[in-house]
Design a protein around this nucleic acid. Structure first.
Lengths: 212, 212
DNA sequence: TCTAAAAATAAACACCGTTTAGTAATTTTG
DNA sequence: CAAAATTACTAAACGGTGTTTATTTTTAGA
């Protein structure tokens, strides 16, 4: 009589299959070029079937958004080995940049696209656990930096927000190809990564000077 | 025999009409919700007519992009009255934030969307005059700050890039509604503008400390 | 085996950007 | 002035999109 159980397993299996195909297509061709019809074709079902497992395309996007956050968190995990909070903060930035540049599509999904946020807004409990957890990692690190003498007299929340803003701005300008089009980058034939690296280096220097 | 001249006037007139309608729809409903068919309907011509005046939708988007930059530059114009370069730098940030928050759709077009950059890439002379000019205003101001004792030992280009990254990150996170979904902002029931303002205030403090 | 429920789908709806082939208006020419 | 040529415009189609509805197929239990 394990029919109901099996059916439920089948249901989540199918959901995963859809999500897996969606992610595959999304990574290969980008979000806008991934259609419900493509996904359906990939799993060899009709487009209408997708709608038996997901309310609409935004729900699929949001599921991929969750996966993306798990990937980001995984990029942060090795950071525990840095005992010095300031060093950890700097390496966090590097990890963030690396995540963004090696997974530009995913990064866009997490922090640029509005669809996942819209989905979050439409959920009754209007929270964003993934974002909160990631931000808290930053907040705690900044807080520890302050406990060991850095960033005196600056509000932890605001400073964390400032750091996130900078790093996000750098990554999103890089990914969206705006950096490659400013004159200096063109003249010196600098690749995006080089501009991002030296900009981050300057940021690092600035942060170091805030110790005193 | 002013036929040719009149026809040319008519041509630019029509182009403007299309652009005007496109902008109107774009500001009202956003870029993705503005279709060629909508624009055609607004000007009471058939959709195919649009293609007699613009190569494709990206060309229209790029034209709006140019208009948007003109609007941004207009936001910067009053800044000449600030003779102190550091004060001007800070006010530039405020002007930028104001521009972004009061014209979120336009801001997205200028600095988030990739379509206009793609259009620029496809132009043979691969430059981005508007972006260059705007960035140069920042660069010159930073340079003047350094001449009057600020930001010692920091590379002007990198520092300018850092400042732009921060401000852009702050604005884009604000506009894309990512800020409103982090826990602290929700808990304290802070509106986006308040978070942005206090974050920018912290940035200002940080920049001030770089004088020494 | 028959029936009720569940799962999958074909087909449609209303859009989209874009192209093509053909019509209507205008200008130039004989 | 009429005919020819050029220009301006558009109807209709193509191949795509997300999504819904009505229908069929598959499965499960009596």
């Amino acid at each position: 009589m394990g029919v109901k159980e099996r059916k439920e397993r089948d249901k989540v299996e199918m959901r995963d299959k859809i999500l897996q195909s969606a992610q595959h297509l999304f990574l290969a061709k980008g979000l806008d070029q991934t259609s419900i019809r493509n996904i359906a074709e990939a799993i060899e079902y009709s487009p209408a079937t997708i709608y038996l497992y997901f309310k609409d395309k935004n729900e699929i996007i949001h599921a991929l958004h969750l996966d993306g956050f798990r990937l980001l968190v995984r990029h942060f995990e090795p950071l525990v080995k840095f005992t010095d909070p300031f060093e950890r903060l700097i390496e966090m930035g590097n990890a963030y940049i690396k995540f963004a540049t090696t997974n530009p599509g995913v990064y866009e999904l997490l922090f640029v696209r509005t669809e996942p946020m819209e989905y979050v807004s439409n959920c009754l409990d209007e929270e964003w656990k993934e974002g909160d957890r990631a931000f808290d990692v930053l907040f705690q690190t900044v807080s520890q930096c302050q406990q060991s003498g850095h960033f005196k007299g600056l509000d932890t929340q605001n400073l964390s927000m400032m750091i996130w803003s900078f790093i996000h701005g750098l990554c999103s300008l890089g990914i969206s190809n705006h950096i490659t089009h400013v004159k200096e980058a063109r003249d010196k034939k600098l690749v995006v990564d080089a501009v991002m690296a030296s900009t981050y280096q300057t940021f690092q220097t600035v942060m170091e000077r805030l110790k005193a």
